[in-house]
């Protein structure tokens, strides 16, 4: 019989690089270390676990396919998603298709996530094209307004 699965998680404290000359109350400068400083592995967490992790392991589990997914992952350092974008998920000719009907934009791929990534590339392209175009046709103006409700510039 296989051992039972388990999982834990930690919200971690950001790390600190101590440069030469830095002297904290209870530590020598890191440049004087002759051996590795004390370590904690995730197996034996030193930080309290914020809350119990709910683990629902299901062997031979249900389909992971969703009918609808919220998108919030723009890979552009200047832009961020300000409001989650609702995507309809469907299967077409063996591929997964995600679509945002409000702006008539879609993406496809072998899996849900590859379809989402394809959508993300198209969405960035659409955002650039309607942002740059002047004057806008009425339909493009409507799309630009919808995009502006969901996508914002990231503050410098």
């Amino acid at each position: 019989m296989a051992p039972s699965a388990a999982a834990t998680y930690q919200s971690l404290v950001p790390g600190l690089l101590e440069l030469e000359g830095f002297q904290s109350n209870n530590r020598r400068p890191s440049s004087e270390f002759r051996e590795l400083p004390a370590q904690n592995s995730a197996r034996e967490p030193s930080r309290p676990i914020v809350a119990e992790l709910r683990l629902g392991l299901r062997e031979g589990g249900p389909p992971a396919r969703l009918d609808r997914v919220l998108f919030g992952a723009l890979k552009d350092p200047r832009l961020r998603v300000a409001k989650p974008i609702p995507l309809d998920v469907s299967r077409h000719q063996g591929k997964t298709v995600v679509s945002w009907k409000d702006v008539n934009e879609s993406g496809s791929g072998e899996t849900l996530c590859s379809a989402i990534e394809d959508f993300e590339i198209g969405l960035r392209s659409l955002y650039r094209s309607v942002s740059a175009a002047e004057p806008l046709r009425p339909d493009s103006a409507r799309i630009r307004q919808i995009l502006a409700e969901h996508i914002a510039f990231r503050p410098a």
Binding site: A5, A6, A7, S11, L12, A42, R43, R58, G61
Partner: peptide
């Protein structure tokens, strides 16, 4: 595309001015 597991990890009171790091450890998966 079958779902093997779904792990929920609520994080409280995060300060948006600094990055957040999350470590999930799984045993005997």
């Amino acid at each position: 595309e079958t779902l093997l597991a779904e792990l929920a990890a609520p994080i409280k009171d995060q300060d948006p001015s600094r990055p957040t790091e999350l470590a999930i450890s799984l045993q005997n998966f």
